[in-house]
């Protein structure tokens, strides 16, 4: 929950109670006989209040099972959970007079520390990770649907490549050599050499070089009778790119060239130079699919971070409440006043 102005009332309330509790503890009238701690009236009160607050905190877990019951707004519960939880830690510290006590109480201390630290950690995460998700994952979708989305992306990728390149596994026949599609004098782009293996060599500053090194065309010249409508020619680089990089990336493998938007962009630029105009929409499609997959993976990572602390916080707090009740029962049994 974002800590904003609406927490003011709760925060002041907590501070006031903390101060009152501390004063009562410090000026405990029984401090000189029994000593400050859990056995004095003040100590017992602080301990009981701390247990009540902790029960309220745990009750949040139960309330979540019945969100449609009229038990108070979820925000009020959440604010109470945060502030009363913090207050209970302070009261526990006073109640135990900052001592470890016996084995059970030492364990309770450890549990309180872990629960509180994980809670504070989670709260801090909630201050900025949602904003991070908002800005860095514009294509965010539901977490539980991510797998379906990725599945669709993979399928769509196959479809696009088949549409533009004919087939995925077999190499395309290489097309006629084409004049370089970009202006001479452009800086050379470093590309993996094997992209260009079956394609015309990328034009690196001169039409002559391109023509000279081009292998003899395997397909008949364009004066042939109209071909049946098939995939546009010149998609081999795209196909190779898809087979070697995009498809594994979409399937979940790590490909550094696609892992960051910047690198993906430069790869895309190189690819565009190697493919003729009809193939460009195919490149658009494949690159945007990769981009979407990247975003979804980022979303999954961020959401895992946002929720991971709960795996520690919730089980430990249940264990804490069980043991705290055990402690309360046994301490009251053996209470000596």
């Amino acid at each position: 929950m974002l800590l904003d102005r609406k927490h003011k009332a709760w925060a002041w309330f907590t501070v006031a109670l903390a101060v009152i509790g501390a004063l009562a503890w410090w000026f405990d009238p029984e401090a000189s006989t029994i000593g400050r701690g859990g056995s004095t009236i003040v100590g017992l009160t602080l301990g009981s209040l701390a247990l009540l607050f902790m029960l309220f905190c745990v009750a949040l877990s139960l309330k979540r099972r019945v969100p449609h019951w009229r038990l108070g707004r979820a925000q009020a519960w959440m604010r109470g959970h945060i502030w009363l939880g913090l207050l209970s830690v302070w009261f526990v510290a006073l109640h135990g007079a900052f001592e470890r006590g016996g084995p059970l109480t030492t364990l309770l201390w450890v549990l309180i520390a872990l629960v509180t630290l994980s809670a504070v950690f989670g709260l801090i995460l909630q201050q900025f990770v949602p904003r991070l998700l908002l800005h860095s994952v514009p294509g965010e979708t539901l977490a539980q649907q991510m797998d379906r989305e990725l599945e669709w992306i993979r399928k769509r990728g196959e479809e696009v490549v088949i549409e533009f390149c004919g087939s995925i596994e077999t190499a395309q026949p290489s097309p006629m050599p084409e004049p370089p599609t970009k202006a001479p004098g452009m800086p050379p782009v470093s590309t993996p050499a094997h992209f260009a293996a079956a394609a015309p060599a990328p034009a690196q500053g001169g039409a002559a070089a391109a023509v000279a090194t081009a292998p003899p065309p395997a397909s008949p010249p364009a004066a042939a009778p109209p071909k049946p409508k098939g995939p546009p020619v010149g998609g081999e680089p795209l196909r190779r790119f898809y087979v070697d990089y995009a498809r594994p990336f979409l399937a979940g493998e790590y490909r550094p060239q696609l892992a960051s938007p910047g690198r993906a962009q430069s790869l895309e630029a190189a690819l565009r130079t190697m493919c003729p105009a009809p193939i460009q929409p195919g490149i658009d499609a494949v690159m945007s699919l990769c981009d979407r997959a990247r975003q979804l993976r980022r979303q999954r990572r961020l959401m895992r971070i946002l929720f991971a602390w709960l795996i520690l916080h919730i089980p430990l707090s249940w264990a804490l409440i069980v043991l705290a009740i055990v402690h309360a029962v046994f301490a009251l049994r053996f209470l000596q006043r």
Binding site: A143, Q144, I311, I314
Partner: peptide, 16 residues
């Protein structure tokens, strides 16, 4: 179950 719920549920049961 939501993202963390499965693990959380299992661990809660185990710890209690």
């Amino acid at each position: 179950p939501h993202l963390a719920d499965r693990w959380t549920g299992v661990l809660t049961g185990v710890l209690i």
